[in-house]
Amino acid sequence: MVRRPRLNPVAAAARNRVEDALTDVLLPAGAASGAAPEEAAPLVLVACSGGPDSLALAAAAVYFTKGGRCRVGAVVVDHGLQEDSAAVARRAAAQLAGLGLSPVEVRTVEVAATGMGPEAAARTARYAALDAAARESGAAAVLLGHTLDDQAEQVLLGLARGSGTRSLAGMPARRGPYRRPFLDLRRADTEEICSFYGLDPWHDPSNTDPAFARSRVRTQVLPYLEEQLGPGVAPALYRSARILGQDADYLEQLSSEAYAGLRAEAGGDILLPEEGLRTLPASLRQRVLALAAIEVGGTQPSFERLLAAETLLERRGSAGPVQLGGRVGVYRQVRGKSVLPGGPSYGNLVFRNNRPGTEPPSRSTQE
C-alpha cells in the first residue's frame, strides 16, 4: 500500500482560509457531479504575480475544483516595468497551469506616468486589468494573496501619513468581488506552502528596493521595530487593523444615516443644515461633510480641508467658499440669498462642483 504524503499543516490552514473566504461562492462538495464543471461550477480567479504569496494561494484554491465546488483560473498581470517581466509572467502562467488552474491568462498593462507615483500607478493599472478579466469571464470572485505582513506594512504607512481610521484599518478581507484569504497568514507561511508543492516562486526585486517607501518599511522599519520592541510587532499591527476596521465600519454606518437625514439637493448642489451639523460629534460631522463633497463629484477631502469647512459653522469671518478638492467648494448660505426654489435657504452649508461654465458663489465676508 502506497502511503500518501501527509498534508503540510500550513497548507491545510491555507485551504481553510480560502474556503472561509468563498463561503458564498463554493458549491457543496459533490454538487456538480453528473454535470460538466464548466457548466455547473462558479469561476474563481486568482490574481498571480508569480511570487510566493499568490502561487501559494493558487495551490490552496485549486483544491476546491475537486468535486466540482468551483472552477479556478488565474490572471497574471505583466506591468512591463522590468526587462524580463514578460518572461516572468509566462513562467508564472506555466506553473499555474501545472497546478491545474484553468483558464490562465496573462494580461499586459501600460503603467501611466502620472503624478500619483509608480506604485499607485501600477496598482491602478493592475486592478483595471483584474476588473476587466473578472467582468469578461463572469468570475464570482477574485482572490488576492496579501498576507499579515502586507497588512502590517500598510498600517505603518498609514501611520506615517497621518491617516484616519479607515486607512489605518488596512486592506479589507473582502470588497466587492475581491477576497484576501491570507491576511492572517505570514509571508513565511506562503514560502513554506510553495516548498511543499514544489513551486519555484519569483521574488520581485522592487520589494527590496529602498527607493520605495513600502520596501523600506519591509526591509528596515519592521525589522528594526522587532529588534527594539521584541517579536510580535507585525501581528500586533494586524490586530490593530482588525479593531480599527470594525470601528470604521460602525462610524461609516452612523455617518451615512446622519447624512441621509440631513441632505437636501438644489440644482446639483448639496445642502446640509448648519444646526444639524453642529449637533453631530466631530468624527461623524467630518464624515458627513466628506460624503457631501464626494456626492457632488469631489475627491475625499483631507483632514485639514474638513477642519477648514467646519470653521464655516462658527459664523465668524468669511462665508467661503472653502475648496475641498476635485473642483468642489463649500460655502455658508448668507441671509437673503436663496438656493432652494421657492424661498430662502439661510442656515445651510452649500456644496458645489465648480465645473467649467458654472458661476462660483460670491465671497460674502459678513452677514
Rank of each mutant, 00 (worst) to 15 (best):
Pro5Gly: 15
Arg15Tyr: 10
Asn16Lys: 15
Ala21Phe: 01
Leu22Ala: 12
Asp24Gly: 07
Asp24Cys: 06
Val25Lys: 00
Pro28Thr: 04
Pro28Glu: 07
Ala29Ile: 12
Ala31Phe: 09
Ala35Tyr: 09
Ala36Asp: 14
Pro42Val: 09
Val44Arg: 00
Gly50Gln: 05
Gly51Gln: 03
Gly51Phe: 00
Gly51Cys: 05
Leu55Phe: 06
Ala58Asn: 01
Ala59Ser: 13
Ala60Ser: 01
Thr65Lys: 03
Arg69Tyr: 01
Cys70Ile: 08
Val75Cys: 05
Val75Glu: 02
Val75Gln: 00
Gly80Trp: 04
Gln82His: 08
Asp84Leu: 13
Ser85Val: 14
Ala87His: 10
Arg90Lys: 13
Ala94Cys: 11
Val104Thr: 01
Val106Phe: 04
Val111Ala: 10
Ala112Glu: 14
Ala113Thr: 13
Met116Gln: 11
Glu119Trp: 07
Ala121Ser: 15
Ala122Cys: 12
Thr124Ile: 10
Ala128Ser: 14
Asp131Tyr: 09
Ala133Leu: 08
Ala133Gln: 01
Ala140Arg: 04
Thr147Glu: 07
Gly158Gln: 06
Ala160Thr: 05
Gly162Met: 08
Gly162Gln: 10
Thr165Leu: 11
Thr165Ser: 10
Thr165Ile: 13
Leu168Arg: 02
Ala169Ser: 14
Ala169Leu: 08
Ala173Leu: 07
Arg174Trp: 08
Leu183Pro: 00
Arg187Leu: 09
Thr190Asn: 05
Ser195Cys: 12
Phe196Pro: 01
Pro201Asn: 12
Trp202Ala: 12
Trp202Ile: 08
His203Gln: 10
His203Ile: 12
Asn207His: 10
Thr208Ile: 10
Ala211Phe: 08
Ala213Gln: 11
Leu225Trp: 02
Glu226Ile: 09
Glu227Val: 05
Glu227Arg: 13
Gly230His: 06
Gly230Val: 11
Pro235Lys: 11
Leu237Glu: 01
Leu237Gln: 05
Ile243Trp: 15
Leu244Glu: 03
Asp247Met: 15
Asp247Cys: 14
Leu251Ile: 06
Leu251Thr: 06
Gln253Cys: 12
Gln253Trp: 14
Leu254Val: 15
Tyr259Leu: 08
Ala260Thr: 15
Leu262Tyr: 07
Ala266Gln: 12
Gly267Lys: 12
Leu272Glu: 02
Leu277Gln: 02
Thr279Asp: 13
Thr279Trp: 13
Leu280Tyr: 04
Pro281Phe: 07
Ala282Val: 13
Ser283Ile: 11
Arg285Ala: 02
Arg285Val: 05
Gly298His: 00
Pro301Glu: 00
Leu306Ile: 06
Leu307Tyr: 01
Leu312Met: 10
Glu314Tyr: 11
Ser318Asp: 02
Ala319Cys: 07
Gly320Tyr: 00
Pro321Arg: 07
Gln323Asn: 08
Gln333Thr: 13
Gln333His: 12
Val334Asn: 04
Arg335Val: 11
Pro341Asn: 05
Pro341Met: 02
Gly342Asn: 02
Pro344Asp: 13
Tyr346Val: 11
Tyr346Ile: 12
Phe351Arg: 03
Arg355Gly: 10
Glu359Arg: 15
Glu359Trp: 11
Ser362Val: 14
Ser364Cys: 10
Gln366Asn: 14
